[in-house]
């Protein structure tokens, strides 16, 4: 039984992963390649697009590092030239995720920010406003806890929590696992909420259509210059918590100039997840970008 959430008991909550360290096993239901890692989970849940009132909680724990075998024996000493990009493994998984999402007609956004910028609140608000228009699912990344996924599920949509353990970012392999637990269908929206971290997630393509960087106006206008990789990797910047602007000395134009300096192509919207200010423009952006996505193979439209 899971000691975190009590799965395996009569409760409504079942959590994949978590604390059962060492329960490593192979998983026949995944259709992508693996590199070695340990899994703690014991079975697969299938989700329906319209979840029942009693949600099944899922989390995938990637706290365990890679295992590898040490092969004894001797052979001749030699140099091998490899010249392979270190991120090539991740990028291959990302390409697989992207192809899969495209084939299913799902538009995916990867939300990145520092902790506390309001990503989850922004998603909750967005889902509440858009859930009658399309199917939405969320993949939540955090080092620990299922708090964010629970907040998302309270809106009535599917959410899978990935716990990265010591990991500071989601990678494409983790997201591939999470996709196995979601069903959306053509026209669906997938929001991936990355681990709160303005550095590491920039380097990892997850297979999303776009990275969206969320910066709250309480954080300081020079963040794009201090953490340029993230703002360079994003296609959209949401300046969140605009309702707090009257109480702050936040130089909006300096912040926008900083973002545009590291990424001349970044689009910027000012929003408030609390009041809803600016969100219609964000929804219009989603709609416009999703409509640019290539049609799934075999779809005459």
């Amino acid at each position: 039984m899971c000691t975190v959430c009590g799965c395996g008991t009569s409760g409504t909550v079942a959590k994949i992963g978590a604390e059962s360290a060492g329960a490593s096993h192979a998983e026949p239901h995944h259709n992508h390649d693996h590199y070695p890692h340990a899994h703690g989970h014991s079975h697969l849940h299938v989700h329906q697009p319209d979840p029942a009132p009693e949600h099944i909680v899922e989390a995938i724990d990637f706290g365990a590092g890679p295992a590898g075998g040490h092969a004894p024996g001797l052979s001749q000493e030699r140099m091998i030239s490899i010249e392979r990009d270190i991120l090539s493994k991740n990028d291959a998984f990302a390409a697989e995720n992207r192809a899969r999402l495209r084939a299913e007609g799902v538009f995916a956004l990867n939300f990145v920010s520092s902790p506390g910028s309001g990503k989850t609140s922004l998603l909750v608000r967005t889902i509440t406003d858009l859930r009658d228009r399309c199917l939405i699912a969320v993949i939540e990344g955090d080092q620990q806890t299922s708090h964010d996924a629970e907040r998302i599920r309270a809106t009535g949509v599917q959410a899978v929590q990935i716990n990265t353990g010591k990991g500071c970012h989601l990678d494409a392999h983790m997201v591939g696992h999470a996709l196995d637990h979601l069903s959306l269908g053509s026209g669906g929206l997938l929001f991936i909420e990355n681990v709160g971290n303005l550095v590491c997630p920039a380097a990892f393509d997850l297979g999303e259509a776009h990275k969206v960087v969320v910066l709250s106006v309480t954080e300081g206008e020079d963040k794009p210059l201090k953490y340029p990789d993230m703002f360079a990797a994003a296609d959209l910047m949401l300046l969140n918590k605009s309702d707090l602007l009257p109480h702050l000395e936040f130089d909006m134009s300096a912040c926008m100039a900083a973002a545009l300096r590291v990424n001349p192509h970044i689009q910027i919207l000012t929003v408030s997840a609390k009041t809803g200010e600016g969100l219609p423009a964000f929804y219009a952006w989603i709609e416009a970008r999703a409509s640019l996505m290539p049609a799934p193979a075999g779809d005459p439209a």
């Binding site: 590092g65 991120l87 990991g167 990678d171 590491c200």
Partner: peptide, 18 residues
């Protein structure tokens, strides 16, 4: 500290090569 993941990826590439 995504360098940990990067070194994990290096190990995976070495395994590929083996």
């Amino acid at each position: 500290m995504h360098e940990v993941s990067l070194i994990e990826s290096v190990v995976a590439l070495v395994e590929d090569e083996r």
